[in-house]
């Protein structure tokens, strides 16, 4: 944490202040201000094109902000740099799984456990501690047997799990999961739920995007609903889901 950085509210781990992002004429995120509480599970929901993925991309520095301010773990940032994510203890997965395809499953994990600085990285060889850690992660996502396969040769569900494993290897405090349950078989859904619950027990903050309201209701503590790049509602899950605005606009029954 940078000294002298603006302290906002200790209760929240991520806050955005009027952040915007547009792609040409399309305004994907419009002056959005949200707060994500520290610890526990927060889910982000909303119709297609409501800016959920863009929000995650902005928070992880994959896309540059067009305006506004992001406060991550007490540090306020006008420019979020992707390579500084570990400094903020933040990691993520992608909606379209983005693994290192022509790299082995093992190295997909190892690369996250390795030295970041250039010259020490040149001298670093795999050490037993990293090996144990990588093994532990691969076992917990059920891919230990596949460790020597290229990531491109895994099934869709396995790829999704490997990506979650890769995020776990970061040992972050903040996990952003972009649609972690989409397209998974029920048993894999259970596995991902289990992983997320374990993270919650460790006191981490988990933010995930999901369309599946049953999972959202079951798992999360806090819910943020976006619509056309703006905030529709935010708050405790049961509270938000019972608000008429949400029922009319989003759930639309």
């Amino acid at each position: 944490m940078r000294p002298g950085s603006e302290q906002i509210d200790d209760h929240y781990v991520i806050q955005t202040e009027r952040i915007s992002k547009h792609f040409g004429a399309v305004r994907a995120v419009r002056k959005l201000s949200i707060s994500i509480p520290k610890r526990g599970l927060t889910s982000i929901a909303g119709p297609n094109g409501s800016g959920k993925s863009t929000l995650v991309n902005l928070l992880s520095g994959v896309l540059p902000l067009d305006g506004g301010l992001v406060v991550i773990d007490g540090t306020s940032l006008k420019v979020v740099k992707a390579h500084e994510n570990p400094v903020h203890g933040l990691t993520r997965t992608f909606q379209e799984v983005r693994l290192f395809d022509q790299v082995t499953v093992w190295n997909n994990i190892m690369v996250v456990l390795s030295e970041r600085r250039l010259f020490p990285a040149l001298l670093e060889r795999v050490n037993p501690m990293q090996r144990d850690r990588a093994r532990g992660i691969l076992e917990s996502v059920g891919l230990w047997e596949k460790k020597d396969a290229l990531a491109m040769n895994l099934s869709y569900g396995q790829r999704k799990l490997l990506e979650i494993g890769r995020a776990m290897a970061m040992e972050a405090n903040i996990y952003l999961f972009d649609e972690p349950f989409a397209g998974l078989f029920p048993e894999m859904v259970e596995k991902v739920k289990e992983i997320m619950n374990r993270m919650r027990e460790q006191g981490d903050t988990i933010v995930f995007i999901s369309h599946n309201m049953d999972i959202v209701r079951e798992l999360s503590d806090h819910l943020i609903i976006l619509d056309s790049g703006s905030l529709l509602e935010e708050g405790a899950v049961d509270d938000v889901l019972s608000r008429p605005k949400v029922i009319n606009a989003y759930l639309g029954t």
């Binding site: 992880s60 992707a82 400094v87 990691t91 992608f94």
Partner: peptide, 15 residues
């Protein structure tokens, strides 16, 4: 090798 595969993704992990 990870830069070869997906430069944007590896940057997210602090490189």
């Amino acid at each position: 090798t990870t830069i070869r595969e997906d430069e944007e993704a590896i940057a997210v992990f602090g490189y």
